[in-house]
Design a protein around this nucleic acid. Sequence first.
DNA 1: ACATTAAGTGATT
DNA 2: AATCACTTAATGT
Length: 210
Amino acid sequence: MEEKLQDYYSVIFEPKLLTEIIKFGKFTTIKKNELLIDVGGKITHIPLLLNGAIKIVREAKNGDEIVLYFLERGDTCAISFVNCLNSNLSKVRGIAEKDSEVIFLPIKKLEEWMAKYKSWREFIIDSYSIRLDEMIEIIDTLAFMKMDRRLLKYLQDKVKIMRDPILSVTHLQIALDLNTSRVVVSRLLKQLENEGKIKLFRKKIEVLEY
DNA sequence: ACATTAAGTGATT
DNA sequence: AATCACTTAATGT
């Protein structure tokens, strides 16, 4: 755990903070599709991603859900950190998109570190502002982009996250992530294939442009 | 061989 | 873009 932490975070965190993280953080391995945080769940720890990817999903009361964004190595859910300073309930769901390694940090410590470490303050503020930018982008995507462009963006984002141009996803899963119907996804995918942007296989999609 | 799941299609709203 | 009602294709048992 320590080496991995050094690898990604020694540049941004001061040494004293790193030792505290090692001391108080709980290192965990998470398998694909495992649930990290559920809607309404109390948050006592904030994850710091060492590697892998987490899918953040918003769920409506009627069960509709939509993918907001992905967390990658070096990311943390600053939204939930700030969120949990007020209420301790999560407004989103986090699912492992692939096998991931995470350090869980207790919220109490995080608050303490805010006062103690400049690098930690900067880290939280930075990731909060990055997240906010992403949220704006999501609003644009949802409000102004047609399904076909949303779909392409989804695929391209996923390729970046998975670091593999060949995605193992079914049309149905995509439809659920985008909150649309499978039929629509199938048709649009075919359209994208005809445009030469992707190649379709059974349970697999190769993204040619990203 | 049969059942199940993934994907394709036409028609309708 | 969504839904319906199929069809076809691939996979699992």
